[in-house]
Design a protein around this nucleic acid. Structure first.
Lengths: 221, 221
DNA sequence: CCTCGGCGATCAGGACCCGCATAGTCCGTC
DNA sequence: GACGGACTATGCGGGTCCTGATCGCCGAGG
């Protein structure tokens, strides 16, 4: 579990990072608000342990930014004062939990774990079409309840077609979605992959060719 | 409220036990580490007042044992020195609070009360998958009731995979969650760790490889 | 009938991915 | 300072997957 400690008291940082590492967590440290924002932009942390009074960028602002950006990172706010006012404003800014200094280390660990538990990703929607189902998160494709094993490119193409919900997707669009922007536009790799995909899916007419335009999932027959 | 004092300075023991009894607590006394362990095994104490430097069995070891056993007893560690190093190791061993001698008796009472009042931690949420269980708080993994001993990295990888609940986790995500900012993004250490993890878990197919995408916990076998 | 563009299909080479063994480094312990 | 455990770098072998080249089919248009 990856956590970020944003705190400017170096002694405390030392204690916390050392202790949390011993608890098996991957710990990064930011000694001021700007560094914290930078790290948060790069890495996906499960939990942010955030001192409220940070140099350069105030903890409240970091909190607000994260919430506004729809981050998955849970926020555990630390503060020196335990006044009701502080507690209220901290939580309304979007912090998920709150701890006043001084605190017992075991308590901190327990709360981090509790937050991490809450950070479950939302249930991934299944893409379906007729008797075909595709689970983007698990990367599983089934046809009529039967598992179909696809390679990464085959999977990517099918996923793109399914999320177009029957609309025509051009050769170029497929290249862009399943490959990347720098893909050679004159390659025939889409065609080749399409052959194998159709073969694995059983019925070739499940993916319809629209001459001159592209491909789409066929109407239910 | 039942408390145990584990302390070898008899004068101090006398003062404390007398005082705490007057506060309405049920006080037991152990003058060395071995006696403390014995009493802890027999009785369910709310709070243990634990001198760090005890004869026969060191306070640290008692602390570790209690935490490892998942005891409900809260630990209040006493020590003569207040150095940062002491503080760190004490807390990381699982002590819930910390008091350096000399201290005011009123302070001790307040802290004991605070520890007792603190809500019992919720039953630790187990991550499970088929016959595999992982306890994040106690860092214990079992396969079919059989204990499996994992290194920190192995544990972190398994924890990440289990909390993804069957979703595919990429090599990069694993690196991000189980390692910290110093991790070389081109390392193959995840792969190597995966080998050892699979070996320790017994059946290699329990963690499925999704070529080109990552790893995931296999469907129920 | 011929041509041509678009597409299906096949194949082989090579790139890439992954499992695994080995050896080295680092660090805490005795 | 020796030792052992944990982590990491390197390298190899085997397998899978991608992709460019190529050919053939088909329908449209002249």
């Amino acid at each position: 579990m990856r956590v970020l400690i944003a705190e400017d008291e170096e002694d405390l940082v030392e204690i916390l990072s050392e202790g949390l590492r011993r608890e098996g967590m991957a710990v990064d440290v930011a000694l001021d608000g700007a560094a914290a924002l930078e790290l948060l932009a790069i890495n996906a942390y499960k939990v942010l342990i955030l001192d409220r009074y940070l140099p350069l960028v105030h903890g409240d602002d970091i909190c607000r930014d994260l919430v506004a950006a729809g981050s998955q990172t849970r926020i555990l706010m630390l503060t020196a004062s335990g006044s009701t006012h502080d507690r209220v404003s901290g939580l309304t800014l979007g912090a998920d939990d709150y701890l006043t200094k001084p605190f017992a280390f075991a308590e901190l660990v327990a709360r981090i774990r509790a937050l991490a538990r809450r950070a479950q990703p939302p249930i991934p929607p299944l893409l379906t079409h007729a008797d075909l189902t595709l689970d983007p998160a698990r990367r599983i494709v089934e046809r009529a309840g039967q598992r179909v094993f696809l390679t990464p490119k085959e999977f990517a193409i099918l996923e793109t077609l399914l999320s177009a919900r029957g609309a025509v997707v051009s050769n170029g669009d497929l290249l862009e979605q399943a490959w990347d922007a720098h893909a050679d536009p004159f390659t025939n790799t889409v065609r080749v992959t399409m052959v194998r995909l159709r073969r694995k899916l059983g019925s070739p007419q499940l993916i319809e060719t629209v001459t001159g335009a592209g491909y789409r999932m066929a109407e239910v027959i």
